[in-house]
Write a protein that binds this DNA or RNA. Structure first.
Lengths: 206, 206, 206, 206
DNA sequence: GCGTAATCGAGACGGTACGTCCCGTCTTTCA
DNA sequence: TGAAAGACGGGACGTACCGTCTCGATTACGC
C-alpha cells in the first residue's frame, strides 16, 4: 500500500520538529508490511523498496541503520514483525499442552508468510555482521518465549527438575522446528511428538 | 546426483551434444574450494568466480542450476562441501561422550571458517526458493549425522528407549547449537551441558 | 555461387557425405526472409536465428561461411536479397529520366524495409573483414547499375562526353542517396534534383 | 549538447541530485580517446570499457544514452571524435584544388585508423535505431564540410553557378569516397579524378 | 554390400558483452 | 535545515550470441 496513506499523525509532526521519529517508525512498519504481504522474500525487499514504501529517503534509512539486516532485525525485535509463536495452552497437563503447541505451531507457521518471515530473520542475522549479533544476543529470544515461560513455571511448582534450564529445554524443543521451518517442509506430527517425548522423558531406557 | 533442473523425460533420446558431467563436477568442486579456502563468504562467491575457478562458462552453470544457491546447496548435499560435524567419541559412557562431542563441536565450529560455511549454507537455503527446499528435504541431514548414528546404536543395544526416534533426539541436541552458530556467539559450556541433560534425562522431576 | 570458403581443390575427390546444396540454399533464403520481413535489423538476425529459420545446424553455416556478414553479403550478391534499384525510365529526355529515377528511388527505398536491408548490407561490409571486401570488389556494383548502363548508352550515342566514366558518374549520383538512405531521413526533392543538375551540367558557371 | 534521451519537459523543476554534466563529458571524451588510440574497433569498445576509461558507472551511461551507438554518434557529432576531412587547398585553381583534396583524402584516410573510425561511425548509425537517425538528421554533416565551404565561396564570387547547391555538390564528390572507404579498397586516382570532372564539368557533351 | 568418412540437425561448451538492478554515498531542491 | 528525490561509482546478476565441439543419424564413395 502506497499513495493513499497520508497519515494524520505524520502530517502534524511534520511541522516544527524534524520528522525523524515518524520516519523511523514508517521504515519499520513499511518493512513489516512488505515482508508480511507475501509478495516478497528477504532478498526482494530492497532498501530502495522500503524507502519508497515508507515514503522516506534512502539516506534516512542509512542514517539509523547500517544495512537492511539491521532494519529487519529491529522490526522483529520491536514487534513490528512478529515471528508469532503461539501461546502454550494451559490445561494442566504439560505433555498434552506441549504436544498441542507443537501441532499448532506447525500448522500455523508452515504457511508461506511465516516461512518467509523466518527466513528473513535468519537472513538478517546471517548477513548482518557483528552488530546484528549483539542485537540478538540482548534479546534473550529463548528465555522470553512462551515455552520457556511455561517450563519455568512448571519447574517452580516442582513438577520439573529443580536444576532444569528452561531456556535450554525450550531451545531443544523449538530450534528443530525453526530449522525445519526455514529449510525442509513440514515434518510428520509423529516426529514432532517424539521431540516432546525426548524433552520431557529423556532418551534413557527405564 | 544430478542438477536440480534435471528432467526425467530427457532420459530418453536427447539430441545434440550431451551435457558435460565433467563441467558439472568442476563447478561443484570449484564452489567447495572457494567456500573452504577461507577467503570468501557466500556473498563474495559470485557465479562468475565459480565459473572462472571451474574453467567453465557462466551459462553452463545456469544450464544446470537456477541460481547460485542451488549450486552451493548441491555442493553441500553431495558432500563436496562438508559441514564437518565431529564424530562422537566412543568411550562407552554415552553422557560423557555427548558432552565431549558438544564441547568439541563448539570449539571446532566456532571458528570463522566454519561459521562462514554455515552462513553460506543458510544463505543458500534462504535465497534458493522452492526447488532448493526439495533438494534439502530429500537429504536426511539429521538422520545421517554422527549423533543420530550413535543414538541409534545405543537404542539398538537397549540402553535407550526402544521407541526413541534417533533423528528427533539428534535434532533436539544439534539444532540449538546450529542456530547459535549462525546467530549469536559461542554459548556457555554449562548451557550446552544442560542440553545434553535434557536430551538424556528429560525434564520431569524424579 | 559457392560460399567464400569454398576450396576448388576439395571439389575433386571428396570423401564422405557431400555437402548439402539444399542446406546452402535454405540458409540464403532464410536470411533473405528474415531481413525482409521487417521484423529484424541486421543485428537482430543472429546466426542462430538463421539456422533455426533455415532448419539447419549452426555448424553447417560456419562450414560454408566465415561469419554472418558473409552470409548476408552472398544473399545480396546472389539476388536472394535484392537492393532493388529501380530501372531508369526511357523517355529520351535524359535529365527528365534521371529526375524521375531519383524521385522514384527516394519514394521506393525510404520505406523501413529497404532502409533496413541497406543497413544490413553496409553492416555486413563494415563488420565482414577482408574477404567480404573482395566479394564486393568483384561485384562491380556501380558498373552494373541501371544508372551506369543508361549513362553508358547515352555516351555511346554521343550525347555525353566521350571520356565520361559512367561508373563514376553513377556513383556521384547514387552514393549520396545511399548514404542518406542509411543515415538521415528522406532528403528534399529539390536537394535530389540539384544532384542531377550537378552530374549533368557540372558546377561551373556558364 | 545534451544526450539523446533528454526530455524537454524535465527542464522545469527536477527533484533530486542533478545529472552530472562532468560525467557526461567524461564519457564522450573517453569514447573518443578509445576509438582514436588505434587499439580498438567499434565492437571492441564495450560500454564497460568506456565506463572504466571515463571513471563512470555503467548505469550513468545508460541514464544518458540508450546504447553504445548513441554515445559514439554523439561523440562524433559534437566533435569529440573527428572524422577529419582534410582542408581543401587554396591555390585559386578550383579544379586543381579539388583534385589535390581528393588525392590527399584518399591517402590520408585509407589508413586503418581512419577506416576503423569510419566503420565505427557507420556501425553506430546502423545499430543505433531511430533516435540516432534524428541526431544525425540535425547534424548538417555535408553542409559544414570543407568542400561545401569552398564550393559555397566560389559560387559567391560568381565562378560557380548561382543556383548551385553546395551541399549537394559536396555530397556528389565525397559520398562515393566515403562508400569506397568503408567497403572496397582504395580506388584508382583516375576514378577519383573522373569524379571531380563530373562535379565540375557535368556529363553533357559540349 | 560394407566399412569409412564427412555431412547433417541439434544443442552444450567456454567466452564475452549486454542491459538491469541494487548497494551505500553524494548532492541538489523544497518545505 | 532536515529530509525527499534521485544521480553517482561500483559491481553482480541472468540472458543472448559468438564460434567451436560433440553427439547420434544419415549419405555417399571405395574396396
Amino acid at each position: 500500500m502506497t499513495g493513499v496513506t497520508e497519515d494524520p499523525v505524520s502530517a502534524e509532526t511534520r511541522r516544527g520538529r524534524p520528522r525523524s521519529a515518524a520516519s523511523h517508525q514508517a521504515v519499520l512498519t513499511a518493512t513489516a508490511r512488505l515482508l508480511t504481504c507475501g509478495e516478497y522474500e528477504y532478498d526482494d525487499v530492497t532498501v530502495e523498496r522500503i524507502a519508497a514504501e515508507a515514503g522516506v529517503g534512502k539516506q534516512t534509512i542509512y542514517r539509523w541503520w547500517t544495512n537492511k539486516a539491521g532494519v529487519v532485525l529491529e522490526a522483529v525485535l520491536t514487534g513490528h514483525l512478529r515471528l508469532d509463536f503461539s501461546p502454550v495452552p494451559e490445561t494442566g497437563d504439560l505433555r498434552a499442552d506441549l504436544l498441542a503447541w507443537v501441532s499448532e505451531t506447525l500448522d500455523e507457521t508452515f504457511t508461506e508468510g511465516h516461512r518467509s518471515m523466518a527466513r528473513s530473520l535468519i537472513s538478517a542475522l546471517v548477513t548482518g555482521g557483528a552488530e546484528t549479533d549483539s542485537l540478538l544476543a540482548a534479546s534473550q529470544i529463548w528465555e522470553e518465549s512462551p515455552v520457556a515461560d511455561r517450563l519455568r513455571a512448571e519447574r517452580d511448582v516442582g513438577r520439573l527438575r529443580a536444576d532444569l534450564e528452561p531456556s535450554a529445554a525450550a531451545a531443544a524443543l523449538a530450534s528443530p522446528l525453526v530449522l525445519r521451518l526455514i529449510t525442509s517442509g513440514r515434518p510428520q506430527d509423529s516426529w514432532a511428538h517424539s521431540l516432546v517425548d525426548i524433552v520431557l522423558d529423556g532418551a534413557w531406557a527405564r
